[in-house]
Simulated scan of single mutants.
Amino acid sequence: MTILVLGATGATGRLLVQYLLERSKHVRIIVRSKEALPKDLLAHDNLSVTEASLLDLSDAAITEQVTGCDAIVSCLGHNMTFKGMFLPPRRLVTDATRRLCEAAAAVKPATPIRFVLMNTSGNSNRDLDEPLSSAQKIVLALIRTLVPPHADNEAAADYLRTEIGQQDAAIEWTAVRPDGLIDAPEATPFEVHPSPIRSAIFDAGQTSRMNVASFMGDLVIEDDIWAQWKGQMPVIYNVED
């Protein structure tokens, strides 16, 4: 199995790459600088590295990256700096999702490529009737207006829901929504729900990056887990003691 991972130098992305390599999968990554990765990962025989900005690549180059892949996982996100939040590319996640899906269509795979998008519990799945309090709706509207990365995350998931949908010949997708992200030294028990079970704004839970990496890795590796969650936006929480 060959998996293309975007955002591999990020806090969750590098954990995902390690998780997949430990399970003897072939991993391709596109990174601005490979120096941001640990040397032991770079030396792994099953890792292929392309140094580039994804959105600067031509359509043909992205199609070449997608060719031969069984799955694509996007852990892309904006740096939480002024430049990362308010300067171009303001639609990093959405544009990357669109171009990767278009590349998958160009490849015309025999079976659909699995696409996993790392998203956020603050984004509602508008395919479902997920209840939001009036106060939460107001806060989310403000965040959507004032924090461009949130609007980008919403648009990326909406692209998968509305443009790719449930019957695409080239792509099957899942958008994983962790709650409040934390670091942890190892994976711990976690639970996955079709929709949030608590308010992402006023009663946020915790989700370790290690658990997110484990779940996303299992999604692309394990057929039964994929069958359970494809075409959905599962929310993942750490199991509380």
Rank of each mutant, 00 (worst) to 15 (best):
L128P: 04
A187F: 02
I30W: 06
Q136D: 15
L57K: 07
I72C: 11
A170R: 08
I221F: 04
W226V: 00
Q166M: 13
M216R: 05
S48K: 13
R23Q: 14
E163A: 13
N123V: 11
A103Y: 08
G10D: 09
V31C: 07
L54F: 01
V5W: 02
T12P: 10
S48W: 10
A227M: 05
S214I: 02
V27D: 04
D95C: 06
E186T: 06
P88E: 14
T188C: 10
R23G: 04
A8N: 09
L6E: 05
E186N: 07
G165D: 12
I113K: 07
D179K: 03
M80S: 07
I138S: 14
D70G: 09
N125S: 13
E130G: 05
D56K: 12
I3W: 01
T97A: 14
V116T: 07
D179M: 07
A60W: 01
E51G: 04
I201F: 04
E163S: 13
N46T: 03
S134C: 07
A204F: 12
T81D: 13
A71G: 13
D223W: 09
M118K: 05
A43Y: 01
R23T: 00
A52L: 01
G165N: 12
D45L: 06
W226M: 01
R32H: 15
E186K: 10
M233A: 15
A36F: 02
E154C: 10
P189L: 12
E172W: 00
L92H: 14
P178C: 08
E186W: 06
L20F: 00
T120W: 04
A169E: 12
V220K: 14
L20I: 00
T12M: 02
S121P: 08
G217R: 07
I164V: 11
N238K: 09
I143R: 11
L54H: 08
T50C: 05
Q136K: 09
E130R: 07
L6V: 00
L47N: 05
P194C: 06
P109T: 06
T94Y: 14
Y19E: 15
K137L: 10
L41T: 01
G180V: 06
S199N: 05
L15M: 07
